[in-house]
Amino acid sequence: MRTLLRIDIADAEGALMRLIGLVERRGFTIATLDKAASSNGQSTVTMSLDARDDARNMDVLARQVARLLDVRGVFTPDFEPQIAPEIAAQAAGTPHRWRQACPPRH
């Protein structure tokens, strides 16, 4: 099932590579990926993801992403997740439609 994840990430060397690597390694394929321009030392990445098998759990992935030192926030959608990628990209700009998946680490 396709689902969305929004991540606020610090502008640090390797941060994006680390994020993408973790998502792939933990059993999800990235169907679409949108990275907004940097602002105040961080940027927002929105991904639509497909789990490779039924055992993969998006809540667990969100907590694993939140463990990354460069991640400032992890959010899951407050709307129907099976939407087209272009809508996902638009949704990234509407913070009120996302809920925090786990508390910030720092």
């Binding site: 809540d59 667990v60 907590r63």
Partner: peptide, 8 residues
């Protein structure tokens, strides 16, 4: 101690 282990 690590929330990411719960339900994994």
């Amino acid at each position: 101690g690590d929330a990411a282990e719960i339900d994994k």
